[in-house]
């Protein structure tokens, strides 16, 4: 966090020294975004906490737990691809799922699928600005990415074990 705030200070000083004093514009942008995000974030986190207590952990664990392996990674990829909304929905969902016992590679697959498929984004931005043909090409090229990221995450996790041998 200290790193993050030093970055803010450094960039802020730099922006203030450039002609046009763009730091004010940046402050306005940030404040506007904060006002927009805050009320929803508070509600989303509170909902995520309570939902996490209500979801049966055994069910989540057997479906996408650390022992669910490749099947769990594929299931998590499918769920992630159909999760609508921005990070304000997806990240609290990941918190809920991991507290309920989801495995790390499965969560990586979920987040990757949500990031690359995000169908609301395809509908509103990509299809209108780039055309359906481009969107279809990109989606098809991305089909394998969520499972790939999940499996790679599993490999990365096992590096310390391999090195310890």
């Amino acid at each position: 966090m200290a790193l993050l705030w030093s970055l803010v200070v450094a960039l802020g000083i730099y922006a203030a020294r450039t002609p046009g004093a763009r730091h004010r514009e940046a402050a306005r942008l940030a404040a506007r975004q904060f006002v927009r995000v805050l009320p929803r974030l508070v509600c989303a986190l509170i909902a995520a906490g309570f939902l996490g207590k209500l979801i049966p952990g055994a069910f989540v664990g057997s479906l996408i737990g650390p022992e669910s392996g490749a099947r769990g990674i594929l299931i998590a990829s499918a769920i992630g691809g159909f999760t609508p909304g921005g990070p304000i929905i997806s990240f609290p969902t990941v918190v809920v799922l991991s507290e309920a016992g989801a495995g790390l590679p499965q969560m990586v697959a979920f987040l990757t699928a949500w990031s690359v498929f995000a169908f609301h984004r395809v509908l509103v931005y990509e299809s209108t600005l780039m055309g359906w043909r481009f969107a279809a090409t990109r989606l098809f090229s991305s089909l394998a990415l969520p499972p790939l990221a999940g499996f790679t995450a599993g490999l990365v996790m096992s590096i310390p074990e391999i090195l310890a041998r």
């Binding site: 705030w5 960039l11 450039t18 730091h23 402050a27 975004q33």
Partner: peptide, 17 residues
């Protein structure tokens, strides 16, 4: 919350710079 505020500031600064 403090992290989110800082991240929004970084994003806005990069955006104008």
């Amino acid at each position: 919350l403090p992290r989110i505020v800082a991240a929004l500031c970084v994003a806005a600064l990069v955006q104008v710079l």
